[in-house]
Design a protein around this nucleic acid. Structure first.
Lengths: 231, 231
DNA sequence: CACGTTCCTTGACCTGGCGCAACGACGCGG
DNA sequence: CCGCGTCGTTGCGCCAGGTCAAGGAACGTG
């Protein structure tokens, strides 16, 4: 159905210890989809019928609170699985993954999971480890939100972005997809106003370089110090 | 080694679709340990050598921030697995589980996991689902911390406690283990002062009934309304 | 290139809830 | 049953950061 080259995904931890033949077979059963920037892969609350893998691009998983507030629960980077409702024991998707940049998404029908696992027990083990890491990251974020002031949280968020989505840019690291102040606010639990003020401050001190939907980290060390709490 | 009666754990989702014989064998390989209230099962940062199951009692998983602040990452209820570092791909424990009440804990050496899984593939599937649920809960908490005011967060926390650890008490529900204001503060990311004020307020309105290390929910509906944001 | 839209910045003001402090109450150990 | 340690309550001042407001800069589109 798809005809994706195995080499694109061979190195992913999810497929570790899976034979080339099995992997090819799995890829043959996948659907590829191009998602333009700004579009959702699926919608929060929608019945879950598939699970997904991000091949290329960048997704932000949004959740809307009953009273209309929006937050970004996590970012999906290439190689990550998402929309894995099966694992969450739900039959609907808990969030909405929106493409921050044009993205390429692989998906398999939910019903295939059992069968795939049957043939390849490692798949579950690997999937579980990936979820374990996400759980850990979630706990770190909870701890940050509970104990740290806004500026530190933003520093952490920016560092994480640089880590996961950084691209060398001159003497710094540029976040490799369009990101707004609003996005950062929704990732750290603040308002875009506060984020704007903080970034302006950092820019004045030469830590970062801002711009419309753009962010370049110039002095990673300084941010790390901030994040650690050393004023 | 242990001689635990199968019936104690037979109903747990973790062991679903495991044969009685296999379960008995697994239980034979387990170590039982009684943990008095206030004592830790293991310590954050310690090398991970086992994984655990809470049989009876109640644990609070604490994390200490580099600068000494403490928070409660989650509560462990009977039937929950914890200290599952294998799944997190870590070799040390990320938190410290402290007994809130006298507890009974089962543990298996980490090294046994692979072997157990070999014989019983469902174990991984079930473990993953349990982690999936925890991940979801973590996301909910992140959303709460990002968007909700303190009083609402406390309302949510108390409702969750009533749900998971509630015991009928007269016309209300009593939290079935000793819990301090400090604990609730560390679960919601506030100070004990604010929690105390909030609970006093609720008590005045007849929603709850406080006391030393004690908390009884009298009007669950009122709390639910608060949690939902209805003034 | 004019116009609308989206994104960013900055100022002024206001308030939730934190920090500090003092005190009261319960319960345990001697 | 007395003293001390833990736990809870409450008042007060202060400030980080949210809200409200206004305007400017970059981008896309007809």
């Amino acid at each position: 159905m798809a005809g994706i080259d195995r080499s694109l995904v061979r190195a992913l931890p999810l497929f570790a210890r899976m034979s080339d033949a099995d992997l090819d077979r799995m890829l043959d059963q996948a659907t590829v989809r191009r998602v333009p920037a700004g579009e959702a892969v699926f919608e929060q609350g929608q019945k879950a019928t598939a699970f997904f893998l991000l091949l290329h691009g960048r997704l932000k998983v949004m959740q809307v609170t009953p009273d209309g507030q929006q937050i970004i629960v996590r970012m999906v980077h290439p190689g990550d699985i998402f929309g894995f409702a099966k694992a969450l024991q739900r039959d609907d998707y808990p969030g909405t993954p929106v493409a921050a940049a044009e993205s390429l998404v692989l998906s398999w029908p939910d019903t295939l999971w059992e069968e795939l696992v049957e043939k390849n027990p490692n798949l579950v083990v690997n999937a579980m480890q990936s979820m374990g890491q996400r759980l850990q990251e979630a706990h770190v974020r909870i701890r940050e939100m509970a104990t740290e002031a806004v500026e530190r949280r933003v520093a952490h968020a920016v560092l994480r972005l640089a880590e996961k989505a950084g691209k060398p840019d001159g003497d710094g690291v540029r976040i490799d997809f369009p990101i707004t102040r609003q996005d950062i606010a929704e990732m750290t639990g603040t308002t875009l106003h506060t984020v704007s003020r903080i970034l302006s401050g950092w820019e004045a001190r030469g830590f970062v370089e801002g711009g419309r939907q753009k962010l370049v980290v110039r002095d990673r060390g300084a941010l790390a110090t901030l994040a650690k709490g050393g004023e």
